[in-house]
Amino acid sequence: MKQHILVCPFEPPLISRLQGQTLVVHVEDVLLIPRVKEQVERHNRLHCIQVISSHPLARLELTPEMKAIPIAAYVPEVGEGGEFYEKLPLLRQLGLQVYLAAIGKTNIRDARILSSLGIATALVMEGVPLDWDAMEDLLVYFAYGKSRHANIEPFNYVISNYSRTSMVDFSSVYFDNPNRYLHVEGDGRIALSAKDAQAGVFIGELDSIDAIADDPRYKERRDKAERFFLEGAGCAYCGAFRVCLGKFSAQRDANPGCEKLFAKLMEISENQKIRDGVVLWQP
């Protein structure tokens, strides 16, 4: 399964079993980051370290030792202003992408601030009630803002990967695209997404990882956007379907606005050149 990147917990015996693979390793304790890097790079390639923390960004115990380590930091918020600005010089030196849930206006506003300060940001959009207008404002800032700023995902991913001949699945930003990522538990069981792993839905084991691509469940998940074409009405009829793939179909009736945002993103993708700037690493 060399073409897939494996997402796994930091368990040295597991990582040893995954020799030669490219890994995303997830931890809760940010202080483990240097150890993870050292362990993984013995016999693997490190794609990034996913830190899932309950602490605000301002309180993460990041250190200068962590420079040049690709870090995806999932945090609930940026945190208290003073603490954040004190940490800012260090944050700007790290290979850091900050993941914020796109809940309410605060995190969306803070994503813009982070970007303007040169810190790459990703907004987690699925599973949260979205303020589409605020998201669109952020998109316009990202795409057309004249002052230099860092990437904002998933906008950057869509613009960078927009193609005439294929759909764009920005689930990759969140390591949840089975075309690219598989999730491996400590005991070697394999899931197609983090959500599946949490729900105990597994489709195989490490020993048979090479056969997973032939598993009908894998193919069904890989091709899940197709089901929208079989529905009488809905997302496949949307002009922006090719960059959204129906991710917000569940809230489309109660909270419409996705079409407008993603149509705008498509328009920008068609017109915009890929932004200059530092690209730390790509999901």
């Binding site: 074409f229 009829y237 949307c238 090719r242």
Partner: peptide, 12 residues
């Protein structure tokens, strides 16, 4: 809307 559907189906 029908046009969008067909464009999504056709891609390239």
């Amino acid at each position: 809307t029908l046009f969008h559907y067909l464009l999504n189906l056709a891609l390239g």
